[in-house]
Write a protein that binds this DNA or RNA. Structure first.
Lengths: 358, 358
DNA sequence: TCAATTCGATAATGCGCATTATTAGCCCAC
DNA sequence: GTGGGCTAATAATGCGCATTATCGAATTGA
C-alpha cells in the first residue's frame, strides 16, 4: 500500500533543501539568478544516492521536457506476412541508432489491427504522445492519418520512399531504381541479353521503382523488356522456360524458392541455364535454402538513418525561437542497395538459347 | 510557437462543460454520485471528434493511471554478439502478446553499455518509470540491480530460467534439461551408444542445464558421458573423430557449421558417420547452411508468455486493497523445447565404430 | 552607515489528467 | 413550506517535475 516512489520532494527533505533545489542540481542548470553552492549540491547528490531516487518520466514529460523516447509504428502487423524478417532488420538499425542517441524505442503494438493493418487513428493517437517523435514503416499509410500528423506538426519519418505529397513527407528510402538497373549491367556484362522481369505489378513504391529500374536498364542497353506476371508458381515457371530467358529478375515477394524449384523441375538448371537475380532479400527464406544473387536493401542502415533524422526533426521542432535554429535536416535520404554475390548468377553459356531480338 | 496540443480543457470549452465532465465521458466512468446526461455526453463526444483530441499519456500516468506500456530490457547489447537472431524471436512473441494485450512495448535502448552489458542503474532507472512493468532478458544480470527492483516492488519478469534467489524472481524459461535428455533418447533409439557432448562449460543457466540433461540421459541409459571442450575448432573436430563418436550433442554457440566442416574435412560424413544434434537454434546461421537436427527453444512462446505474466503482475500490483485480488499468477513457467527433424541425424550404421564400453 | 549588489536559495505556478468533494436545481412527501 | 432524495453537473485537488518569480542574508561601495 505505501508503495510510494521516491520523489524530488523526499530527496529535498533528506538533504534539507527545497524540491526546486533538487531539480536544479539534477538538471545541472542555473536559471539566471539561481545559484547552488558546491556544498549544498553535494548534500543533494548524496541524498539521491542514498534514496536511489529516479525521476518520474511522466512528470518530466508533463512539465514540458522531452521523454527521450522515439516511437516506431508499423502499419502492417508483423505476423501475418513475413514473420520478423521484414521489419526485423530495420529494427536492428533503429536500435543501434537509439543506443547512440541515448533514446528509448517505443513499439506501438497496441493499435488494433483492422483489415490486416494497424490503425493510427483513435487509440493510436492517444499513444503517440509519449514519444517525442515517430518512425513509420509499412506501405499502407492512410491519407487522413498523414494529414493529421502534418497538421499537428508531430515529428515523424517514413522508412521507405514516399512518392505522394512530394516534399512534405520526410523519409529514408532505398534506391531500388538504380539497384535494379545495375543488375542488368551485371547480367549484360556476363553475356545475357534475354532478361525477364518476374513479379506481380503492385502500386507500392518498391515495385514501381523496380519496374522503372528494369525498363530503364533494358532501354539503355537497347534490350526488350519482358514481363512475366502470373499468380500461379507453376504457370510462371512454365512461362519463364517458354520465353527462353537466360536470366530473370525476381521480386522477393514472389516466392523465388518455389519458383526456381519449378523451373528446375522443367529441366532448366539454375544458374547454368538460367541466372536468377533477386531484387531484395528473400521474404520467406528457407532453412537451408539458396544463396540468392541480386541486391539487398540496406535495412539496418535505413533504420539507423531514419532514427537519426527523426532525432534531428525533434530537436529542430523544440528549439526555441530565441535560440539559433540548427540547420534544417535533409528531409529525404536515398540509400544505395548493395549487390549480393550469391550462387544464382552465371555467365551465359552462349549456345543453345534463342537469339536476342534487339 | 503556439503549438498547443488540444487538451480536455479545450474540449470542455467547446462542449460547454467542465474539464472533469470530459474526463468522465472519456473514461466512461461514473464515480459514485456523478451523472452525465446522454445529451451532454453526446456534445462532449462531438467536440472530441471535431478537435481530434487525444489524451496526453504522460498526464494520464502522472494522475495515477497506467500507461499500458510494458518495457523490455536486454542486458547484453544486441549487436556485438549474435545480431538479431538471438533476441529477435523473443521479440516476435512479445510483440504478438502485446498486440493481444493492447499494450505498447518500450525497448530500453538508452542505457549506456559498459563492458558489453547495459547498466540498469542510474540513467536506466530513470527510464523504467514510464513503463508499468518490465521484461528482462540476458544472462548478465547484476545482483544489486535486482535487489533494487525487488525493493521498489517494480513488476518485472525474466526471460530465461533463474537459478539464484529461488522463488523470488519471476521468470519464463525453457526446459533445456529434459530437452537434452530427450535427444539422447532419440539417438539411442537409432542405435547410437557412443554419444559425446561438445561445448564449453559456462556458468550460464542454459549450459548448466544442457550438461545436466546430458549427464542424466546418459546415466539413465547406462552410457558414459564424454565431454569435448576445446577452444579451437580444428582441434575439437580432431578430438571428435578420434573419440569415435557416432553422435554428438553440440551447443549452438560453438560454431557448429565450422565444426562440422572440419569434421567432414577429416573424412567423417555427417550424418552417415556422425549424427550431430544441436541443442538449440544456431546462433550464427549461415545463408544456405545446414538444416540442423536437435531441438529448438520456443522463443516466441517464451516471449509471449513472459509478457502475459508481466501483465498479470502489473494488474495484481495495482489492484486496490478493497477489490478482490485476482489469483496470484504462477511466478515460474517452464516451457518445453520442440525437437527438430533436420538433416544431421541418421541411424547408426553399426559396423565400423568402436564398441561402446558401457 | 545605508543603499546597491551579489549570493543562495525558496515559494509558487502550471503541465493535463483522474478523482473527490461539493453544489445547484428540482420533485416529492409529510 | 420544508426537509429529504434525486439528478446533473462543477470546483478543487494532487500526481512529480521544470521553471519563474521572489526573498532574505551577506557582501560590497561610497
Amino acid at each position: 500500500m505505501p508503495r510510494h516512489r521516491i520523489t524530488q520532494a523526499d530527496v529535498a527533505t533528506i538533504a534539507g533543501v527545497s524540491q526546486a533545489t533538487v531539480s536544479f542540481v539534477l538538471n545541472d542548470s542555473a536559471p539566471a539568478g539561481v545559484r547552488i553552492s558546491a556544498e549544498t549540491k553535494q548534500r543533494v547528490l548524496d541524498a539521491i544516492r542514498i534514496t536511489g531516487y529516479s525521476a518520474n518520466p511522466a512528470a518530466q514529460r508533463l512539465a514540458g521536457g522531452l521523454t527521450q523516447i522515439l516511437g516506431v509504428f508499423t502499419y502492417e502487423s508483423t505476423f501475418p506476412r513475413s514473420g520478423r524478417g521484414f521489419y526485423g532488420n530495420f529494427l536492428v538499425g533503429i536500435e543501434h541508432a537509439a543506443e547512440q542517441l541515448g533514446v528509448d524505442i517505443l513499439l506501438f503494438t497496441s493499435a488494433r489491427v483492422v483489415d490486416g493493418r494497424r490503425q493510427l487513428t483513435r487509440d493510436g493517437w492517444q499513444r503517440l504522445g509519449v514519444a517525442d517523435g515517430c518512425l513509420l514503416l509499412g506501405q499502407q499509410e492512410d491519407r487522413g492519418e498523414l494529414q493529421h500528423l502534418l497538421d499537428t506538426n508531430y515529428p515523424f519519418v517514413f522508412i521507405g520512399k514516399r512518392g505522394s505529397d512530394r516534399g512534405r513527407l520526410p523519409y529514408v528510402g532505398a534506391d531500388y531504381v538504380s539497384a535494379t538497373t545495375r543488375q542488368i549491367e551485371r547480367l549484360v556484362a556476363l553475356g545475357h541479353r534475354r532478361i525477364g522481369y518476374v513479379g506481380l505489378r503492385g502500386t507500392d513504391q518498391p515495385t514501381l521503382d523496380r519496374i522503372e529500374g528494369y525498363r530503364l536498364g533494358m532501354k539503355e542497353r537497347g534490350l526488350t523488356a519482358r514481363f512475366v506476371e502470373l499468380d500461379d508458381v507453376g504457370a510462371t515457371a512454365a512461362e519463364i522456360v517458354d520465353q527462353g530467358f537466360t536470366a530473370i529478375l525476381v521480386a522477393p515477394e514472389n516466392y523465388p524458392d518455389e519458383l526456381v524449384d519449378e523451373v528446375e523441375r522443367r529441366g532448366t538448371r539454375v544458374p547454368s541455364d538460367l541466372s536468377v537475380l533477386l531484387l531484395g532479400q528473400p521474404h520467406h527464406p528457407r532453412p537451408g535454402g539458396r544463396a540468392w544473387s541480386g541486391f539487398s536493401i540496406p535495412r539496418e542502415e535505413m533504420g539507423a538513418r531514419a532514427l537519426h533524422l527523426l532525432s534531428r526533426l525533434v530537436a529542430a521542432d523544440t528549439s526555441r525561437a530565441g535560440t539559433r535554429r540548427p540547420q534544417p535536416p535533409e528531409l529525404h535520404q536515398m540509400l544505395a542497395c548493395v549487390d549480393v554475390e550469391g550462387s544464382t548468377l552465371a555467365a551465359r553459356d552462349g549456345a543453345d538459347h534463342r537469339t536476342e531480338d534487339a
